[in-house]
Computed example of a mutant assay.
Amino acid sequence: MSKIQELFAKKKNRILNVYCTAGYPRLDSIGEVIEALEQNGADIVEIGMPYSDPLADGPVIQQSSQVALGNGMTISVLLEQLKALKGKIHIPVVLMGYMNPVLQYGFEKFCADAANAGVDGLILPDLPEYEFETEYGSIIRKNGLDFIFLVTPETSPERVVKLDKLSSGFLYAVSSSSTTGTDKEMVSVDRYLQKLQGYKLKNPVLVGFGIKDKESFDKACAHSNGAIIGSAFIRALEGSDEIGKSTGEFLHSVLD
């Protein structure tokens, strides 16, 4: 059983996955950010590998990626930083990014180095299902990593079931087809999540995109195992000289 699966075995609901951008707000921030997230109630940390052309990310995360790239963040730097933190991080670590820089790094090397650095799972939104099945999935599994697919309200029931079957760890339910960081109509999201519940999926479901505060977190958790917060947390870190304090205040505003 993976670390992510162990988490869901112990805690069935109100799982909080918090996204942060590697190299933001400073090149060496990641250890401080993860420590603050873990100490203040986050269950999973999702680390974004900054990329110059992020398809699914809204303006807040895009801006944080540009800052991180300007700070000198690369996949190699991130994996070295995480390797140095190994044994100090107790919550699951998921890397989120795009295929182009991963392929430039070397896919097999990336998976091996990520696993060696203590990474538990991967989210690569532009890795197609067919390529996952025929080429990359076996490499991911060989290195003991979970892989999380994304589904949207427009994903057909048959495809949801297929992607759930291919995923391990959890299934990422995108609350709409837009980019991250935008407001959502939670009534339609409720209907969508209730529909997903009816599919009797094998994986837990975490909801992402538009989750920003206690109200939206609570609503997302009503029909899922938990939620993913990204842009709102990036905003909380923006211009902060005290990462621990800003992180604590933000998480307590969501969870308390």
Score class of each variant (00 low, 15 high):
44 I>L: 07
169 G>A: 02
80 E>M: 09
244 G>C: 06
191 R>K: 15
39 Q>G: 06
148 I>E: 00
94 V>W: 03
142 K>R: 14
85 L>N: 02
80 E>Q: 10
221 C>F: 00
179 T>V: 15
5 Q>R: 06
172 Y>A: 01
214 K>Y: 09
57 D>T: 13
98 Y>L: 08
214 K>M: 04
46 E>K: 11
33 V>G: 00
76 S>E: 14
152 T>Y: 12
92 P>W: 12
207 V>M: 13
149 F>H: 05
100 N>Q: 05
136 Y>W: 15
5 Q>S: 06
141 R>N: 10
233 F>T: 06
19 Y>H: 08
19 Y>D: 02
169 G>L: 01
233 F>Y: 12
240 S>D: 03
237 L>V: 15
160 V>L: 14
89 I>G: 06
161 V>K: 03
164 D>Y: 06
254 V>T: 03
139 I>M: 11
18 V>Y: 04
193 L>E: 10
94 V>M: 07
34 I>L: 02
24 Y>I: 02
118 G>W: 02
161 V>Y: 01
38 E>V: 14
222 A>E: 13
130 Y>T: 14
80 E>H: 10
173 A>Y: 12
140 I>E: 03
176 S>K: 06
114 A>G: 09
128 P>N: 08
234 I>P: 00
140 I>H: 04
14 R>N: 11
225 N>H: 12
28 D>C: 02
206 L>T: 11
15 I>W: 09
25 P>E: 10
43 D>R: 12
95 L>T: 06
166 L>T: 10
184 K>Y: 11
233 F>Q: 01
165 K>R: 05
137 G>T: 13
116 N>K: 11
17 N>P: 14
96 M>T: 01
202 K>W: 00
216 S>G: 07
171 L>I: 13
113 D>Y: 04
149 F>V: 04
101 P>D: 06
25 P>G: 09
195 K>C: 08
48 G>E: 03
236 A>D: 10
71 N>G: 04
22 A>S: 13
131 E>K: 13
220 A>F: 05
121 G>Q: 01
210 G>Y: 07
211 I>E: 04
